[in-house]
Simulated assay, not measured.
Amino acid sequence: MSNIVRFAQRARAAHPAAASGGIAPLLASFAHHRRQPGDAYWLKENGELLGVLSALNRRLPELALSVYQPFVEGAADMVAFHPQYARLILNLITSLEDLGYPGGLGARLADWMLDQGLVDAEVNDLQRAELRFLMARHGRTVAFEGLDERLTRFMSRPETFAIPNPRAAYDLLHAVFYLADYGRKPLKLQPAVVESMLMLGSLSHLEGNGDLLGEVCLALHYAGEVLPPLWLRHLRAENTAFRISPGTCPDSSDCYHIFLVNQWLFGTIEDRAFGDAYSGGPMSIQLNRPAISPLREWSQALRAQGNRRSADWSRMRSLCRDQVSENAFARADLGAAESPMFDRFFARFARASRPVPIWPEARPA
């Protein structure tokens, strides 16, 4: 894992990527101005940015990528001391090399991980799927017995994805991304898996969660499915509503991830991404959102119905009319009119048929 290929030193002003409006300032901001370089959050955020650019099949000039040279040169020491971050480090290096970073370090890191037995250190199937995907990007094969069957079983239960569960939502969508090699190979999913994504899409639209809704649309696109126009309208409105401002975001809790997913989606389906003029240095990405989401309003209103709660959308629409805001009511009406399988989604979201458990009396100690 030595012999790192260094970039040739060039005058920054001579390269157009260094000018305001190119991608280089955005990379520099993520590399230097959001998180402490090299910590787990830094690896996550920079891995997400570079992963989106890789999924869009971008090739970037050396000067733009050179902001990551210190990370690449320190990767061997980092992974030796932090083997628990090996998959994160491999992910970032893989994306860098997809984008044009020279040196072949990814393949050497993959071999080192295999030699160290780190493929056996993953604790769940999604991490195993990601590692298998990353290894395959470097021509290495790892086999996890029964992995695809377990992933398919998990993804084929639409009921899971019709109620708020961020962990399950993340796992569903990223399993699709890994199986599709981020759009590099065709993917045909079972109808139940597509239904699961439609349930999650209806939930995300009702919540106004453009982050999750954008990933749902990407996963559906990779699976060759038609994207609902209602969901795309919501995401296009957000596309024009992001505000990128100079200055540090104190806790890095801005809307950077929603922005990245939005750019990824429209870069994929319309070849239109990262067209803003980015200035160098710290920046924050903001998007106005309601303090209380329509999803939460509807969830609270439905639970308040008690024994009157029903899986029938029309009945619940009437009963909950005065218990939710105009915005929440209008959002649900839009979903009912245009979201695929909305009736199935609402029946599951209402949880009217879910029996209340009757616990046996505890035995005396």
Rank of each mutant, 00 (worst) to 15 (best):
R108Y: 05
F133K: 00
A175R: 06
D322V: 11
S279G: 09
G224D: 02
R12T: 08
Q36E: 13
L198W: 09
R137G: 05
E207I: 03
Y68W: 10
F259T: 04
I89K: 03
Q323D: 13
P186D: 03
L319T: 14
A13I: 09
A175P: 04
L227P: 02
D333F: 00
M197D: 01
S310I: 05
A13P: 00
I285D: 11
T160Y: 09
W264G: 01
D115F: 10
G281M: 09
R12P: 04
S310P: 05
E326Q: 14
T94F: 03
A277K: 13
E270K: 09
I258K: 09
G201W: 01
V176A: 04
A223G: 07
L92K: 08
H138M: 06
Y41K: 12
P246K: 12
A175Q: 07
P164V: 08
L189N: 02
D77A: 15
N239I: 00
M341W: 10
R12C: 05
Y278L: 07
V176T: 06
R153S: 15
R289C: 02
F345P: 03
W231E: 02
G100M: 11
L49E: 03
D254M: 01
I292H: 06
H82T: 08
A143E: 15
L265F: 04
N239T: 04
A143N: 12
G146V: 12
P83H: 03
W112H: 13
A18R: 07
V193S: 08
Q69V: 07
T248K: 15
P229T: 10
M155H: 09
G139W: 06
Q127G: 08
E361P: 10
R150F: 05
P166E: 07
G275A: 10
D312H: 12
D98Y: 10
L134W: 01
Q116T: 05
A24D: 10
D111G: 11
L105M: 14
R348K: 12
L96R: 07
F71H: 11
L334Q: 15
M78V: 06
R132E: 03
L60I: 08
A17Y: 03
R243S: 15
V142L: 14
L302I: 11
L295R: 12
A136H: 08
P290Y: 11
A291S: 13
W264R: 02
S339W: 02
G106C: 05
A76S: 13
A136T: 09
A277N: 13
A362L: 14
V123K: 14
E215F: 07
F242N: 00
S2H: 13
Q286L: 13
Y222L: 05
D211P: 00
Y278I: 04
A55M: 08
L200Q: 10
W313K: 04
L319F: 10
E62R: 07
V67N: 12
A350W: 01
C320P: 04
P37G: 00
Q263W: 04
R140E: 02
S299D: 12
P250K: 14
L265C: 09
I244F: 03
R137L: 09
V216I: 12
G146L: 13
G100D: 12
Q286R: 13
I358C: 06
R157A: 11
A352F: 00
